[in-house]
Design a protein around this nucleic acid. Structure first.
Lengths: 177, 177
DNA sequence: GCTAAACTATACAGATCTGTCTAGTATACT
DNA sequence: AGTATACTAGACAGATCTGTATAGTTTAGC
């Protein structure tokens, strides 16, 4: 419900009605709505990490990146797609909210995956560009309801990774520059 | 306030207090909060159109695109930056809200500007990729509070436009393919 | 100066929000 | 069997939300 309808418009009463659970039970297990939102993002991050782990089976870095964006493409084509749960949440919750740490953690995991696919240390421009590809694809595909946006981002990301890989190949041949 | 704090958490009472205006006056001039949100987005779109018009003075398409992203870069470095008002609003308001039309209009204007900078008809992959660059830069720069994200997107967009321009040059030399 | 429109402040309605509290019931362990 | 723990339903508090209504005041046109 947080993902489908938004965090702020999803009230506690609706949540417990849908969960078939008493209000006191919810507040026994979660300190408050903030903590519930954090748990929602935590579980989303776990599923995301599982996806990244599954993609780890693909040895070729560029292929792995392509498979990642292919997965996004399939997700964006589903009827329940509403964009990235993390960047959506970042719009709705305050920067100092407890759940915000989960959002930051997500981008760290994403950045590490991209750095790994590029074979770089992590904090360089190409990683940032792949993050832009991801985030832009999710946001624009949601708003325009156009899954082809994700396909375009996929091609851009793969081209970027390929260009990066061949450049690295060159500097491996002539190191010390 | 809609931009800084978010739409749903900004109540009417706070708006009229800040505006120094009575509640009845507000409801005499706007049908309701939805219409007020639409007006906010409409004015944001007007300012955006003015930016695009100013950039129209730059003749070279790639330079124009670079200037556009340079402007984003400067905006993202300010303390009040909170991402793109339109994609933020898209997270908070329903797809059938009256203000949603303004969001769609924004993306149409953006797409037209990009198509113009690329010299294409408009509905092709490169335009989608530039939209991805824009949207991803705004979203990620906001969340990570890292203006370098926008610089990375800028370089990506310019490289894309340059590659496109030289390819167009080639097909102009050998048309009919 | 008079009239009409638009403003002001503020009370109010009715809904919804998060979170607490009470009281009773089920479950699980020992 | 008995006890502790966790559940249930639901009332309630207090805040906040959008929007309306009342009543008085300012402003502008003629």
């Amino acid at each position: 419900m947080f993902y489908r309808d938004g965090i702020n418009v999803t009230g506690i009463d609706r949540i417990i009605a849908r969960a078939g659970v008493a209000k006191a039970s919810l507040y026994n297990n979660f300190e408050g709505k903030d903590e519930l939102v954090a748990a929602y993002l935590r579980s989303s991050l776990t599923r995301f990490d599982e996806l990244l782990a599954a993609l780890g089976a693909i040895n070729d870095p560029v292929e792995r990146l392509d498979a990642f964006f292919a997965n996004l493409e399939a997700t964006a084509a589903t009827a329940t797609f509403r964009g990235c749960p993390f960047s959506n949440a970042a719009v709705e919750i305050a920067r100092d909210a407890p759940a915000h740490a989960e959002i930051v953690a997500f981008y760290e995991h994403l950045g590490l995956f991209f750095a790994n696919a590029l074979g770089t240390a992590g904090d360089d421009e190409a990683v940032r560009q792949l993050i832009v590809c991801y985030d832009g694809a999710m946001s624009a595909a949601k708003i325009l309801e156009d899954p082809e946006i994700v396909a375009a981002a996929r091609h851009l990301a793969v081209a970027l990774a390929r260009a990066r890989a061949s450049r690295r190949q060159l500097s491996d041949d002539a190191p010390g520059t």
